[in-house]
């Protein structure tokens, strides 16, 4: 059984989680070109090595960020999204 450490719930079976893809910065909606926006929505770096990814704990509907080595599939670190994004704008 592969275990992932959820920042809210602690260590849990990987089957309780869903990967939400790479963490990438959203372009400014009003200023981005169609190409930039399409790349944001559909493009993936798919890099080998340490990457930041969105992960979702299904029973609590909780999104957080995991740093994972895509070469070894080792989870390096998990933390709340608020560490990166702070508070939601009003």
């Amino acid at each position: 059984m592969k275990i992932l450490h959820c920042p809210l719930n602690g260590p849990r079976n990987i089957s309780e989680f869903v990967c939400g893809g790479e963490v990438v910065e959203m372009p400014e909606a009003g200023a981005a070109t169609d190409g930039e926006w399409a790349d944001y929505v559909f493009g993936h770096e798919n890099a080998r090595g340490a990457v930041r990814e969105w992960w979702f704990h299904v029973p609590t509907a909780y999104w957080f960020i995991a740093e994972r080595d895509t070469g070894t599939d080792e989870i390096l670190r998990t933390y709340p999204a608020s560490e990166v994004f702070g508070r939601r704008p009003p």
């Binding site: 719930n9 849990r12 079976n13 089957s15 309780e16 704990h57 299904v58 029973p59 609590t60």
Partner: peptide, 12 residues
Amino acid sequence: VAQTSVARISTI
């Protein structure tokens, strides 16, 4: 308290 999967359904 554990918010987890019980018999494959999300359960508190």
